[in-house]
Design a binder for these strands. Structure first.
Lengths: 338, 338
DNA sequence: TTGAAAGCGCTACCAA
DNA sequence: TTGGTAGCGCTTTCAA
């Protein structure tokens, strides 16, 4: 069986209060008692139960991370960054893959609440704003990463999605493209919407159009849905010479569609991704993509949710918006007709 | 503030015992009391604290997963499978990326112990067998995935690594290769060793050799280390015509090295990976690789650690060994000299 | 300095 | 059926 504080106290011939003191390094204890207690603790291999300590109002040293899917390399990278920074402060990480389904979001959120985690980091889309209020009422710190959470004043770390979209468009426009398409995620995903908006604004400012039928929404199975959507685009009589994909997974789908249909990339179709995951470096051809600084984002969001940062003006949540960066590889080029 | 069982009891005009009854669906309560209590619970948005309930000896509904790195797509897939199956039984998942460092393994293991998780799934290498015994003594169920844990009789789910190595070798031999090399992980990683052993046995049985200088060990930064190792191999006067990589990440490194040095794949160098991650489908050329059934593995290991499977003979731990599968893509071909 | 004791929120046993 | 109550393991007053 597991040793408890009572075992240690008995063995050391002291009260449990004394043992608690040395565990927490507080209070006054004579050096010899402390030493003897410590030695007993080691001997019994005693480790204080975090459950019990949490019940007395202390921390659980657990953070929750809500993301669409841990097997999506982008979120896996975010998770790793969050885990590492949490680890720095002694926290461990509960992973919650939501598939962007409200039902899963809801279930996970209440579960994390019941487990009294010390903070929840949200990196997934969700409709259920009420749930957040509930959590807030239970005074669980919340922070948002890689997403906006409109209508809620939460600490947030994002990349400038709008600007990222503009960068992608600027790059393609600069190459001379005039017929461009977009592969987006579910419309629930705000970052995706922002990227499209930026892309579109830039295109329109250049005096061109982004007709609605050139913008395809996609479901959960990003690669395959992206592939299907791209095939459709490529079957148009006025098929696009370039496609901006709201993440690398969709871009890979587009790449596959092009390959299947014998459409050369980038000669006949330029493809731009988003996220700059490891995937973008290994595709054929390597993907031009908009990069997010995942490591920095993970660090910042953990510090925010744990309020390890310099406290902002009270009542005003911190917002950090990082700059994306365009990484040009070989999946983009001049349109062949030019 | 968060509502407690006392709030509910007071509000409903009953004892906390009654409330506890309806939470756990046990004991006898009249239908009306039950209904009224339930309505009060909803009204107060009461959710029982899992911390408190865990302290009374019930489960924590938390599982720990130790893996080298969640940002490695193979382990991200495993994690997703484990998470989903855990979710089926109402458990959430704490992710622990160890980087295969004993120090991290140790820290995470004791942390999980202090948090009284209901089970730990180990998918990382480790030297510290004593720690496991300690955990076992504290009666935390353990199970191993995608690894062997020699010297410990633990429930285990693996793929037949040895056979996987043989399959890779058979494939390359069948293509006519005679000078082959291996890119392996750190020697601490047993699965890697088994894969090499299988590969080597098959090669030797074919009357060929696998000299030691053709086997390169690699560190934590798999892609880059793989790239470096592959460059070395390609600089040999008797450079190999094929290389078997113990995972897809190493294979990608090899691919990059080949590209950098102008070595054509598969014409001048055939590359075989292992794991069949999403990466293998997007590389240029797509990777021939040995596939592991991650989803099935995740499901099985969760059921094992929760003993949801049909109980084995007591005292005898369950072992499940799944068959790998060779997925032939375009990174392998006949050696050019033939 | 030290320790007795009152919780933390919930479960489970036992008496009413 | 119901509710009082003794813990679960630990923290934290508050006296001694």
């Amino acid at each position: 069986m597991k040793a408890t504080i009572y075992d240690v106290a008995r063995e050391a011939g002291v009260s449990i209060a004394a043992v608690s003191q040395v565990i927490n390094g507080k209070g006054k204890i004579s050096e010899e008692r402390r030493a003897s207690i410590i030695s007993v603790m080691e001997q019994l291999n005693y480790k204080p139960s975090l459950i019990a300590s949490a019940l007395t109002g202390k921390k659980t040293y657990t953070l929750g991370l809500l993301i669409p899917d841990i097997s999506n390399p982008f979120f896996a990278e975010i998770a790793r960054a969050v885990e590492d920074q949490g680890d720095v402060h002694g926290y461990s990480l509960v992973i919650c893959s939501t598939d962007n389904k409200d039902e899963r979001v809801e279930r996970y959120l209440t579960l994390l609440g019941q487990k009294s985690v010390d903070g929840i980091i949200i990196g997934t889309g969700m409709d259920s704003g009420e749930l957040l209020d509930l959590l807030l009422k239970k005074s669980i710190p919340l922070a948002v990463i890689a997403r906006e959470m409109p209508g809620h004043d939460l600490a947030t770390v994002v990349v400038d999605d709008y600007e990222g979209g503009r960068m992608a468009a600027r790059h393609l426009l600069g190459l001379g493209h005039t017929r461009m398409a977009v592969l987006a995620e579910h419309r629930k995903v705000i970052s995706s919407r922002e990227r499209i908006r930026g892309f579109q604004d830039e295109v329109v400012e250049a005096g061109l159009q982004l007709p609605e039928y050139m913008v395809k929404m996609n479901g959960r199975d990003l690669v395959n849905d992206g592939r299907r959507s791209a095939s459709e685009l490529l079957r148009y009589a006025d098929r696009p010479t370039a496609v901006f994909c709201c993440n690398d997974l969709l871009a890979i789908g587009a790449l596959q569609a092009a390959k299947e249909m014998g459409v050369r990339v980038p000669e006949e179709l330029s493809i731009v991704g988003f996220d700059n995951t490891i995937l973008a470096t290994v595709t054929d051809p390597p993907l031009t993509t908009v990069s997010q600084p995942t490591e920095q984002m993970g660090q910042l969001v953990v510090d925010l949710v744990l309020s390890k940062n310099d406290a902002a003006k009270p009542g005003e949540s911190k917002r950090v918006m990082l700059k994306p960066e365009l990484v040009v590889r070989q999946s983009t080029g001049k349109p062949i007709s030019i």
